[in-house]
């Protein structure tokens, strides 16, 4: 089993490396180069040359990739093109904010949706299942900003329970932050809950149709004994991957939500970077998002390996 885990982790690192090439490469496929794209048609060859030199674009791309990659390994993500500030300094507090928001939402969403998903599955076809199904289908179907605006309209404008803008500051204490970030956290929660719930339901249902579940019923066990002893141990691995997949989804959902609520996180920073076509910023943020995504998937697979009885107890 240890070998399987080591291989999976190595694969994760390999993926991360491939991802870094892809992120860097994506900014290189432009006909012409970044300098002419940024400066536009009107730039004279002289200004272009100066700008290229300033960006280091006059060197071959693999040299620039290696430099970028090894700097990133040391925690140096370069300097922003637009305001010439060190990117890491800008990103660090924003990353903390984003992780705070994502963690906040995950803490509510994961337990609720896993429990509801299991409840829906074991009551397949009954009222509670259909009800949960329809609600989650609706939630999946609406864009994230719709949920956000409805929450703002009712909870911030009409009833003034929570603030509509969620600008958190480092000086705020923990409870203030919780209060300020409530609306974006709720929006994110609803967003991932629907997916997580439906996927949990599906994976529990696929376990429920296994012959050993029928056998458990034929052994005269009660429904709850069958589910707790026979279904859940086998559903653990699929549920773990459902959670990981949705946490990854949550990380991406953060981007739009942060813009709606003007929440000072890394998503908003990236969107600003894209609008200003600030490539070093975009690359840095992209690397962080992709890293989190790959990391989560790797952790999920490792956990799934650890709960698999076939791998835990080889022949």
């Amino acid at each position: 089993m240890l070998k399987t885990i080591v291989i999976r982790v190595a694969l994760g690192l390999l993926t991360l490396w491939a991802v870094s090439i892809l992120i860097f490469g994506a900014t290189e496929i432009l006909p012409g180069d970044v300098a002419s794209a940024v400066l536009g048609q009107g730039a004279t060859p002289e200004t272009l040359a100066v700008f290229r030199h300033e960006l280091g674009l006059d060197r071959p791309s693999y040299v620039r990739y290696l430099e970028w990659f090894f700097n990133a390994l040391h925690g140096d993500l370069g300097i922003a093109m637009t305001n010439k500030r060190v990117i890491v300094e800008t990103i660090a507090p924003r990353l903390t904010n984003t992780l705070f928001l994502a963690g906040y939402a995950a803490l509510i969403a994961v337990p609720t949706s896993v429990v509801l998903g299991i409840v829906a599955a074991i009551n397949e076809g009954k009222f509670i299942d259909r009800f949960v199904n329809i609600i989650s289908l609706m939630t999946i179907s609406v864009p994230e900003f719709f949920i956000a605006y409805v929450l703002i309209l009712y909870l911030a404008v009409q009833f003034e329970v929570f603030p509509s803008l969620s600008t958190v500051f480092p000086e705020m204490d923990f409870s203030e932050k919780i209060y300020t970030a409530a609306l974006p956290a709720f929006t994110l929660t609803m967003l991932v809950m629907a997916h997580m719930l439906r996927m949990t339901r599906t994976s529990v249902l696929s376990i429920m149709s296994q012959p050993y579940i029928e056998m458990a019923f034929l052994k005269g066990l009660t429904r709850s004994q069958v589910i707790v002893r026979h279904a859940l141990p086998n559903a653990a691995a699929p549920i773990i991957s459902v959670i990981a997949l949705n946490l990854a989804y949550l990380i991406v959902g953060v981007v739009v939500i942060e813009v709606v609520f003007v929440y000072p996180g890394i998503g908003q920073f990236m969107v600003d970077g894209v609008a200003k076509r600030d490539l070093p910023v975009v690359q840095a943020c992209g690397l962080i998002f992709a890293g989190a995504f790959v990391g989560l998937n790797t952790v999920a697979d490792v956990l799934a390996i650890m709960v698999n009885p076939r791998l835990r107890h080889p022949r």
């Binding site: 994506a26 432009l30 975009v282 992209g286 995504f293």
Partner: peptide
């Protein structure tokens, strides 16, 4: 495809749009 899929779609799209407009 594995590598492309290990970058969140929105993030990848943002990177490309920042280059091409």
């Amino acid at each position: 495809v594995d590598v492309i899929l290990s970058i969140p779609l929105l993030i990848f799209a943002l990177i490309i749009l920042s280059v091409f407009g």
